[in-house]
Amino acid sequence: MSRRSVSVALVFPLLALLLLVSDSPYPALPGPKRDAPRAVVALGDSTMAGEGAGSYEPGTNGENGNWCHRSTKASVHHTRVEGVDRVFNLACSGANAEQVGLTDQVRNTEGSQARQLAAIAREYRVSVVVVAVGANDDPRFADVLGACLRAWIERRVDCAKAMADEWKARVERMTPKVERALRDVRRVLQDEGYTPRSYTLVLQSYAAPVAPGLPFDLQNLAGCPLRTGDLQWVRDEAVEQLSEGLRTAAKAAEARFLDLSKAGEKREACTGGDEMDQEWFTRLTIDFDGLRDEARARHALQESFHPNDRGYEQFGRCMSEFLATTAREASCVAGEDGNLTAVEAED
């Protein structure tokens, strides 16, 4: 029998098989439909949620115990990505790396952000995932600022001296937890049919909210009640070391990294003096109405020393620039016009 005859003999059975199974197609592959709208998703803690900017989404401003404080002015709402149709902010004030990843832990009445991401990834084509997390893990940055505030009130030795020795160790313990959270995000998207190249995963660090050199008449309860030595330590050491730990986590999880440690330079809380509109961070902020309500009183200082709406707008601007490049790493610094710009890291 000739080769042509053999080929024809094999083709007819294959055609018959295709006709037989045509009414029972293979199950659809996981993931969204090919024409699904594209989305950017934000995960993380207060810095990503938008704490300090006000305009909080209904249900996240203390209702039924939810204090996530997700703001409509958060940086993700200022992040522009070509072709994206929807923005989802799953970040929650107080969240740690475990809550961002796959966990049964519940915080602020909400569970795993990675699992929430999975639900979105089935309906939308997730193009970008931006993450800010780590400060609420071992570093407990908000507690450290609280300790420095108490040191000012009690006129004790600079709290920086008490923190400096253990801070590096705290950051080192945090780093693998953030890496694990990033890997959980990748695992969730892989389970939903995404490949690593089909989306961008970015970890951003934190900006220093305070700095030395502020007007003396604001170095008190009227603005920024922190001792000069503590202000300098927060800016020059604490935030820098925190960023280094996060950079290590991003590299290990093969995520891109945006360094915000210098993003607030000369725009920190209280540095503007009488011109508060020049600052990108909130000063000491007290919810006096909340103090009258037992359920809200413990959150009366929650907005203090977080970025404000101007700060989040600038962070979103810088993230937009970064996402428009192929750089693995960049830093947000002020350009000649005073706005933040993404400067690619040198190899």
Rank of each mutant, 00 (worst) to 15 (best):
Thr195Met: 07
Pro196Ser: 10
Pro196Gly: 09
Pro196Glu: 12
Arg197Glu: 15
Ser198Ala: 14
Tyr199Phe: 13
Tyr199Glu: 01
Thr200Gly: 01
Leu201Asp: 00
Leu201Arg: 00
Val202Tyr: 10
Leu203Thr: 02
Leu203Ala: 06
Gln204Leu: 11
Gln204Asp: 07
Gln204Ser: 09
Ala207Pro: 14
Ala208Thr: 06
Val210Met: 10
Val210Gly: 07
Val210Asn: 08
Ala211Asn: 01
Pro212Val: 10
Gly213Cys: 03
Gly213Phe: 04
Gly213Trp: 04
Leu214Gln: 00
Leu214Asp: 01
Pro215Lys: 02
Pro215Gln: 04
Asp217Gly: 04
Asp217Thr: 12
Asp217Trp: 15
Asn220Phe: 14
Asn220Ile: 07
Leu221Glu: 08
Ala222Thr: 05
Cys224Leu: 05
Cys224Glu: 01
Pro225Ala: 01
Leu226Tyr: 13
Arg227Ala: 13
Arg227Ser: 09
Thr228Arg: 09
Gly229Ile: 12
Gly229Val: 10
Leu231Asp: 04
Leu231Cys: 04
Leu231Phe: 02
Gln232Arg: 15
Gln232Leu: 09
Trp233Cys: 07
Val234Cys: 08
Arg235Cys: 09
Arg235Gly: 07
Asp236Gln: 14
Glu237Ser: 14
Glu237Met: 13
Ala238Gln: 13
Val239Cys: 03
Glu240Lys: 13
Gln241Pro: 02
Gln241Trp: 05
Glu244Trp: 08
Glu244Cys: 05
Glu244Asp: 15
Glu244Tyr: 02
Gly245Pro: 09
Gly245Arg: 07
Leu246Ile: 01
Thr248Leu: 15
Thr248Phe: 11
Ala249Trp: 09
Ala249Gly: 11
Ala250Asp: 09
Ala252Arg: 12
Ala252Ile: 03
Glu254His: 14
Glu254Asn: 14
Ala255Thr: 12
Arg256Asn: 06
Phe257Gly: 02
Leu258Glu: 04
